[in-house]
């Protein structure tokens, strides 16, 4: 988990990171690998180069796997942030910019 940036404080304003506001957001809470990546990839395929996708996950391995896999496909990970704990479940927010069609 050392490669993960945990820069967001609890209650962070989701639009703060990456300096770009996402044009699309998908909620993948409850999804596990590899579907977290599969659904992220499918969402990006529908978007244009330059657009930003926000992905919310609560499956911890996805926090490493999705950014790694999506970078392998030539996309850019702008931010990985831990969001506030709600009722014992931790969620993360991944911000990905589509660089390649």
């Amino acid at each position: 988990m050392s490669s993960i940036t945990k820069k967001a404080p609890p209650q962070a304003d989701p639009s703060a990171s990456g300096g770009l506001s996402p044009s699309k957001s998908i909620n993948l809470k409850g999804e596990v690998c590899p579907y977290t990546f599969v659904k992220t990839k499918l969402a990006l395929e529908e978007m244009s180069v330059g657009e930003v996708l926000e992905v919310i996950v609560d499956h911890e391995p996805a926090v490493e796997n999705v950014p790694r896999s999506i970078q392998n496909e030539g996309q850019k990970v702008l931010a990985v942030e831990k969001l506030n704990d709600t009722g014992g479940t931790t969620t993360w927010r991944l911000v990905i910019k589509k660089e390649k069609d």
């Binding site: 590899p34 579907y35 990546f37 599969v38 659904k39 990839k41 499918l42 395929e45 896999s69 392998n72 496909e73």
Partner: peptide, 23 residues
Amino acid sequence: DFSEEQIKRYSRHIILPEVGGRG
């Protein structure tokens, strides 16, 4: 659009950069 079942059925294709959802 893929159904939830299709996303699962074809996930090992979709993951491949050479196939993806488009392929």
